[in-house]
Design a protein around this nucleic acid. Structure first.
Ligand SMILES: [Mn+2]
Ligand SMILES: [Mn+2]
Ligand SMILES: [Zn+2]
Ligand SMILES: [Zn+2]
Lengths: 151, 151
DNA sequence: GACCTTATTGCAACCAGTTGCAACAAACAT
DNA sequence: ATGTTTGTTGCAACTGGTTGCAATAAGGTC
């Protein structure tokens, strides 16, 4: 059974109607690995289903996100990016200087998750964070340049 | 010396021009404690400086953010919120159910920060995160309701 | 103070994403 | 199959925020 049909089932189990619009959005996301913008999703769906409206895409994506089938994140590229919510979750480290995006495992958040649970009774949704900062390459470069200036 | 004049100085030290637009945006933010939207900032500045344009507000806010004088965060209220970047930093826990916003100290992120540094050589900018999830009140309510349904 | 350079502003057009509402169709009952 | 209900869609208008560009003014030099 193709993966997107399982996902379709969880849509219906949650009491939502299965429309061709929703199914094709879900199929496109399930077929792709990596991040897609809403515009890319719209373009891909229209290859098979040409009359899809952009509102339906955004509304489908919001619903799929509510059901935790999809995640949506601003990775600093000027538009939100969408991705199938596979397990285990992952996060991204994004360098402000070289714009590099690195993927890291969910596990780095485990202790933060426990701490929030223990200290505040707060159950955090820590999936697919975008963490901005400076990568090791750019730090090395900056350190070297600072050293040169003190000579 | 009023606080915003110190901040103005750091603007100039970084090689930027001091315009009345920038100064009044900074003064409004420094005067307020808590989060402000761009619209609120524009309205407050116009009480003293009536001809300010919204582009200048957004551009000033972006510059102040680059200089780490201000932080900007999407707390799920439909528009970005801005705040003076006071020390020590803080973060917010936001409940998806009751929409409650709780402030927590920077310290909860210390171990994550060290881990990212150690494991990936990544220097993360961990200030003013918005962490979504379920607060302890809403968890208690959900647990009680689940219990009732199994009876 | 007058002059020059160039960063900054105001403006209007634009972009990604949202919303209100009438038309439509999925799901279910008969 | 047909009808009824109501969740979903398409559309056009709208919102918050961004951008290109000509006009302006901050800050430096003489
Ligand atoms: Mn990802
Ligand atoms: Mn805050
Ligand atoms: Zn880098
Ligand atoms: Zn709550």
């Amino acid at each position: 059974m193709p993966q997107h049909l399982e996902l379709v089932q969880s849509l219906r189990d949650a009491g939502h109607r299965l429309t061709p619009q929703r199914e094709s959005v879900l199929a496109v996301i399930a077929d792709s690995d990596g991040h897609l913008t809403a515009e890319e999703i719209l373009a891909r769906v229209r290859q098979r289903y040409p009359y899809l409206n952009k509102s339906a895409v955004y509304r489908s994506l919001d619903l799929l996100t509510e059901l935790s089938l999809v995640n949506q994140t601003d990775l600093g590229h000027g538009r939100v990016e969408y991705e199938l919510h596979r397990h285990p979750h992952h996060h991204h480290l994004i360098c402000r200087h070289c714009k590099g995006v690195q993927q890291i495992d969910q596990a780095v958040m485990n202790s933060l998750h426990k701490k929030l649970e223990k200290d505040f009774g707060f159950h955090a949704d820590l999936d697919h964070f975008a963490i901005f900062g400076t990568c090791h390459k750019c730090r090395a470069r900056a350190a070297k340049s600072a050293k040169r200036h003190t000579h």
